[in-house]
Design a protein around this nucleic acid. Structure first.
Lengths: 154, 154
DNA sequence: GGAGGACGGTTGAGTAGTCAAGTATTGAGA
DNA sequence: TCTCAATACTTGACTACTCAACCGTCCTCC
């Protein structure tokens, strides 16, 4: 096997392993996908708790249609709603409802605990920072939209 | 947002971004999925170029049924074939055909170049090693089946 | 003030995976 | 020897995505 490939293969395996476990637990306990949760988080921290569908798609790295379908589900569940844009009739916002905000809070704790036990706890703080910095190199400029939200939403 | 989450989110984003690009190029140029290619590689380096379906599933982290369907495709294309096991009638091997081996070689070069440009080239050798070591921590014991194959197959 | 390209969004058709249930085989213990 | 749990694998039904084609709106440039 190629020498330089080792890190890449481990990256692939680690992702498969972690997301399997995390999404199984998210699904089982809360009926959510990893991406569903990700969208809930993005909205919870967004100004006015609303985001254009396009921006949402970009920030969770899904295609435009992927976002439409994902939001379909969240809308059916009552966690997000549509809103039109006064200044541009093309765009429709996805806005987090009160129920959606409550859902986010409900899921948050247990999910953070899962991430911590499967991911965070494997590293010291310095290591985690190093890893984070290395991973940043893999992102295209603009893909690192972590959003500047240092505190709890609301 | 939670401080410890940054690395995790970048991990998720980096994976989405890289696999999107890599599998698009693999698909476009060779008609293969990332997992298809992964299976081809596993088989190419396996003793006798054959592996039990169960072992294959474990090493690429797919479910048993996932492997069945994936191999369906590769069998239809003529790249792998089934073989029975003399000592245990339950198992069926997946064996790489000559065409499959040729396909692996055909894809190999361009895919390695893609991985190198999107992944490898972002790091110095020391950084790549550091990353690899950190990623190893995320794998369960036994999931790091990189297989001890330091050289080209055959 | 059109015309035409770029943008935001949805829809239809197809694909790659999942889980749950089922079949067949194996091997260990009463 | 018979039984029964564990293992290897497949199938059916479903889900979460993708791309390509489409519609409507916006904006620029003649």
């Amino acid at each position: 096997m190629e020498p330089g490939l080792e890190a890449w293969i481990r990256f692939l395996r680690a992702h498969a392993s972690l997301t399997r476990q995390l999404s199984a637990s998210l699904e089982r306990e809360h009926g959510l996908t990893l991406n569903d949760y990700d969208v809930l988080v993005q909205l919870a921290y967004a100004p006015d708790r609303r985001l254009r569908r396009v921006d949402l798609a970009r920030s969770v790295l899904l295609s435009a249609s992927g976002i439409t379908r994902l939001l379909d589900g969240l809308e059916r569940a009552g966690w997000v709603a549509k809103a039109t844009c006064a200044s541009d009739a093309r765009v429709t916002y996805a806005v987090l409802t009160q129920e959606g905000l409550a859902k986010h809070r409900e899921v948050r704790t247990s999910h953070l605990a899962d991430v911590e036990s499967l991911f965070g706890s494997r590293f010291s703080e310095a290591e985690r920072n190093a890893l984070s910095a290395l991973l940043l190199r893999l992102l295209e400029p603009g893909e690192d939209e972590l959003r500047a939200c240092a505190s709890e939403p609301e």
